[in-house]
Design a protein around this nucleic acid. Sequence first.
DNA 1: CTGTATCCCGGTTGATACTG
DNA 2: CAGTATCAACCGGGATACAG
Lengths: 132, 132
Amino acid sequence: MKPENKPVTEGDKLFPCSCQAVGGVLSRIGDKWSVLVVMLLADGPKRFSELKRAIGTVSQRMLTLTLRGLERDGLVTRTVTPSIPPRVDYELTELGHSLCGPVRGIGDWAFDNHARIEAAQRAFDARQEDAA
Amino acid sequence: MKPENKPVTEGDKLFPCSCQAVGGVLSRIGDKWSVLVVMLLADGPKRFSELKRAIGTVSQRMLTLTLRGLERDGLVTRTVTPSIPPRVDYELTELGHSLCGPVRGIGDWAFDNHARIEAAQRAFDARQEDAA
DNA sequence: CTGTATCCCGGTTGATACTG
DNA sequence: CAGTATCAACCGGGATACAG
């Protein structure tokens, strides 16, 4: 059922199904905060202010937007406790947890290779300066 | 050396090192075309026009920009054959190939779960309409 | 504490035209 | 064929103020 791994192409056209699927997921995990939030929720539920403090540099607006997006995608649940002051907890769904593995794969790759990437960038930039 | 997997946090602060690393990589693979290009190059070198046709909806400008970025990061090599008309081939480096595994992890997850995501979105949107 | 509503800036993208 | 230049449009995202 799954279009098998290697051939992303068939003739000259992309597989529309897998491409759109990947594209959609990528635009979510590619945004500035989603992955961070998912990783923070990986080890248990957290409330809004905890997330905000943990990330530190996120605006209230963007955190709300991010959480709404994740909730809409079925990756997190939102639980309101109507006390005073109100309390809202966010928790990864099973689907959300299942995303952690693949994301960690990227994260580990990034950690293992960022030095090489930065070296490549410096080398590239140096070559550019020579040209100029 | 690698900050071990589960605790993304320590006290209340994020690990700066792994976060920046992941963030940098994510902003690359999170952009609209990089992953697509990497996957297309996974099974062998391709020339500029092949990539352009394969993707179809990418502008010439963005494909050039994407390829430059990947080249700068050391993920692809650019080989110019100064013929008339000129010919330029792009190929994944070893580093580029090593990224394919993790990316495929995300891709497989996306493929396996996009139906559930879309269902969750529809359910969420339906709930919103009720509120209105 | 949590969330919404505005305003606004800057980067990213696409369209188009031009060059080697 | 491959790439650059320019311009305009769009959209993410921050700051701020306000509300429940």
